[in-house]
Write a protein that binds this DNA or RNA. Structure first.
Lengths: 192, 192
DNA sequence: TTGATAAACGGAGGCATCCTCCGTATAACT
DNA sequence: AGTTATACGGAGGATGCCTCCGTTTATCAA
């Protein structure tokens, strides 16, 4: 009795971690261009790894979708932390929102993939919502503290507005409009 | 000058028309079970025609989706015209709404396909909306004329309510709930 | 360092699906 | 009954899916 049940686990191999990263970047690229039904062989090729490696990391297409999505959300979160050190808080907020527009524009094919996977995982939705809300909160907070932004808007509201701007837009050539709407909105947030 | 520019076109071949119909029915069946990514070979097999015939009628998968959708909408329209001759107008309305629930339930896989194609064709959306609104109007009108139904509801409102009932339902086992909601609603429409 | 070994890698291969192409069949017309 | 426009079927080459396993390599203990 009382045998060692906790296996002393090795730390993950460096190549494994690296390949996972390569795959996520390649997948974002390929799905952006080809939509959700793009070839997984193409993803592996783009990443420069074997197809077996792809399947080991992401057994199903949905697993890959989900991981890519998380990855992108995390990127936005990190970008917010970076921009939080920008000297001009209003400009920082504007930049971050623009990054969102650019992301959605570039990754149009990916969005469809997300809609497919989002149906399943509410956990994923909750995670994204929280992560993005925090990112916005970070940027808003500084602006308010420095007296440059109005204090009466919650991060959730801003996020929902952003989503609304994306959602209401049709397919073609919506990007300039979305950027304009974002600018107008940010301008409205400015404290006079 | 003035040469005959209008070619005297033969009337379409009977087998062509028949095969088209067979394909649409087979497609509804196969997509219902297998979702939007179901094999087109399977559709042709189910219809009992060659794969070449399928591709001649519907060059792309989306063409097939769209045609199947139109076909189903037309079915609902025809059903409404049939039910309009039912002696009991309230019962007729109830039957028609139930047919809608059953359609959506049976053709769950198809719904996903529609969402994919609906993004593209607003023309299709407009067509469906009009056709279904007319169907409802037909059924409502008789009930109102005979003093069996309240007069203060527009066909569009009923259609939107129906869509709402479908949309708000989750995935599993929603059908009984939807039927119950429809019944409650129809009961509410009854003139006391 | 140097094995030992758990962990990860690559890609061949078998099977499914896609879609084109063209020889054959047949319905519509005369 | 003959002609011809039109449609049919399905073989076949290309591509994609996913598993399986022999090979490679990073980690760890000595």
């Amino acid at each position: 009795m009382g045998t060692e049940t906790v296996k002393a686990r090795r730390k993950p191999r460096a190549d494994s971690i690296r390949n996972r990263e390569l795959l996520l970047e390649a997948a974002a690229h390929v799905f952006s261009a080809g939509g959700p039904q793009a070839s997984l062989d193409a993803v592996a090729r783009q990443a420069g790894v074997g197809i077996g490696t792809l399947y080991r990391h992401f057994p199903t297409r949905e697993d890959l979708f989900e991981a890519v999505y998380r990855h992108e959300v995390d990127h936005l979160g990190e970008l917010a932390e970076e921009l939080a050190r920008d000297p001009d808080p209003v400009e920082a907020l504007r930049k971050w929102l623009h990054a969102n527009v650019r992301l959605v524009a570039t990754k149009k094919g990916m969005i469809e993939a997300f809609q497919l996977v989002a149906h399943g995982s509410t956990e994923l939705k909750a995670y994204s919502f929280e992560r993005l809300t925090n990112a916005i909160g970070l940027l808003l907070h500084r602006g308010v503290a420095e007296g440059k932004l109005r204090a009466d808007i919650a991060p959730e509201d801003l996020l929902r507005t952003l989503v609304g701007i994306f959602y209401s837009q049709g397919t073609a050539d919506w990007q300039p409009t979305a950027l304009r709407l974002v600018d107008i909105f940010v301008d409205g947030l400015r404290k006079r």
